[in-house]
Design a protein around this nucleic acid. Structure first.
Lengths: 199, 199
DNA sequence: AGGTACTATCTAGGAGTATTAGGAATTTCT
DNA sequence: AGAAATTCCTAATACTCCTAGATAGTACCT
């Protein structure tokens, strides 16, 4: 009677799911696949994870945490354009290194609120971004708009790139560098809001 | 023996799938669900569509075509910032009106090449964007970079918005308008590439 | 050491889904 | 009308998510 417990845990199950997501894509992360990878029957997973949805949510939170940490490390001690570039590159690198985890962060949020409250990732990510952009001396609400623009651009680029949205004519790498230049320039001279400017 | 054929067709199946995607989300578009909606047995669908993957690919192509048409109509007769804003708003509106179809366009492309070749959407979308941005007098490779930046920003914004990525503090609508301002300004003064600029 | 409570895992099974194969009904062509 | 092609069905397989109830392992208490 080989019983030898696997020592499962919600975190271990989540990690196995995340690894699988990176290898075969998030949509192929199934309960049975995760169970197989852990050498366990599918039913056993339900002691640690409520459902497949729940597992996906946990993977998303894990990814958010990891990505935030990577970015925080990257921008530590940097300022201005250096910080912006480090931030952006860390973002893109995470998406490349962990495609499955990254797509998990894109799913519309239906995460257990009690669980989400314990995950520092999303909240810290926002703080990090705001504090970095504060170097550009923007006041609210421009700061919020700038944060949203930056996140949109970074996410959009990595997402399109991952989906094969860029033709192979010009290396995505080069376009990426120019986009960061452009973003930096833009943030430095954020257009003033002239509503009905008469001149 | 009530037989009364449903008059299925690859296009009709695709349309049913697209409608379903908008109603319940792309991930809940299953063969059985589409069959139920059409009043038909699941197996019948395989006469028109190779597999679920294939169906998703067809939905993606349909969406690309529709979105391109909407954008083309929106920018017809406009130029400069007017055209940019019309383009962007048409993009965002399509994503809002057809969330399921829109997410279908994001899936990594594994579409039947023979089928993709007949769909004008993606190719026309690229042409459309290039011709619109030509108004900003950019030369290659800057034009390509600008196109990619614009697509990234529009896609990123709508995608984050759909995923609930923006807190409710400030209306997404307002940030969107400012982002378009910023994008326009940026395109007008696209930063010259100073590699090792000594001054 | 032995008993007890807890929990991790298993066995068994229901319901839904994707897909294939082959057959029957209906339309269309001649 | 008869033949051919198309449209749809029935039947069957295999995989998925998930629940319930049983069993084996661990930890703690005395």
């Amino acid at each position: 009677m080989r019983m030898a417990r696997a020592g499962l845990t919600a975190d271990r199950v989540t990690l196995a799911g995340a690894e699988l997501a990176d290898e075969v894509g998030l949509e192929h992360v199934t309960m049975s696949a995760v169970a197989r990878r852990l050498g366990v029957k599918d039913a056993s997973l339900y002691a640690h994870v409520r459902s497949l949805e729940d597992l996906r949510g946990r993977i998303a939170l894990l990814a958010a945490d990891e990505k935030t940490i990577r970015i925080a490390e990257a921008i530590a001690g940097r300022a201005g354009k250096d910080a912006l570039v480090a931030y952006a590159n860390a973002w893109r690198k995470y998406a490349h290194d962990h495609p499955g985890r990254y797509t998990a962060t894109q799913i519309p949020i239906q995460i257990d609120p009690e669980l989400a409250a314990r995950a520092p990732g999303p909240r810290r990510a926002v703080e990090l971004t705001y504090s970095m952009l504060r170097a550009y001396a923007l006041d609210e609400p421009d700061l919020t708009d700038a944060v949203r623009l930056m996140r949109s651009t970074l996410h959009g680029f990595t997402s399109l790139e991952a989906a094969g949205g860029f033709a192979h004519s010009r290396p995505a790498e080069d376009s990426w560098a120019r986009c960061l230049d452009a973003l930096h320039t833009l943030l430095e001279r954020w257009p003033a809001h002239h509503e009905g400017d008469p001149s």
